[in-house]
Amino acid sequence: MHTTKHSSTLPAHRYTLVVDLDRCTGCGACGTACAVENNIPPANEKATERTGTVWMRVLEAPASSAAGGPTTFVPIPCQQCDNPPCVDVCPQRAIEYDPRTGIVGQIPVRCLGCRYCMVACPYHTRSFNWWSPEWPAGMESTLNPDVSVRTRGVVEKCNFCVQRLQAARAKASAAGQKEIDPADYVPACVEACPSRALYFGDAADEKSEVAVLSKDGESFRLLAALGTGPKVFYRSSDPVVRERLSRTGVTRG
């Protein structure tokens, strides 16, 4: 039922992220900014690449051509699907698809930690808190008061810094405006990217940068064939990169 609702009527606002792979240097500033903004604790000393809590991962894709060539770095936050496989499987509605913004939100205080959503998500953008969050002494004062700290044993993920959207709405409503100023709502990763590889905006606005970029021939989405309808687009001028990253992983023997 959720499925039909999501795919038949698209939200009024469609907050969208476009990642320009040609510009990404793999510096990881997006992930750091994300962790600071969203109160993601420093990794436990025993955490591995597969057990740490990360909302914005930067992965290394294989070389762009058979002969070698430059490495492609692929930043992967939650893909904010319009037809999210995770929402349907959560037994207790701890994941919500906001029909006004298209943002898939996680409610960690309601999460049971069953990890079914992690199994359902083909992008592996969800993290389970295998350890209790711990900040070194003094570092608590750097915590963002707009974002709650999550406990051990729950699943969390990127929500396009939805607290910034709320702040922008509050500002707009205080000024007596119905709509927010797009400049007021920019996720931390986009703000932090030194090479300006990340574009963010409302794709429902046909004239917005993200609407234009996401529709041109150089943009594609990960695992588009699965029909999940991600709102994170990737673009590259290299057709080999586009072809390689559009595929489904299992097809590589």
Binding site: H2, D88, C114, Y116, N129, T151, G153
Partner: peptide
């Protein structure tokens, strides 16, 4: 033991998502 927050198991009854197979299982 498998779930991260077993004390919240009752949430499935309180906020059920009937579209989830796990709800049916629970």
């Amino acid at each position: 033991v498998d779930v991260g927050q077993p004390l919240r198991a009752w949430f499935t009854f309180w906020h059920p998502n009937v579209h989830s197979m796990l709800t049916e299982v629970t």
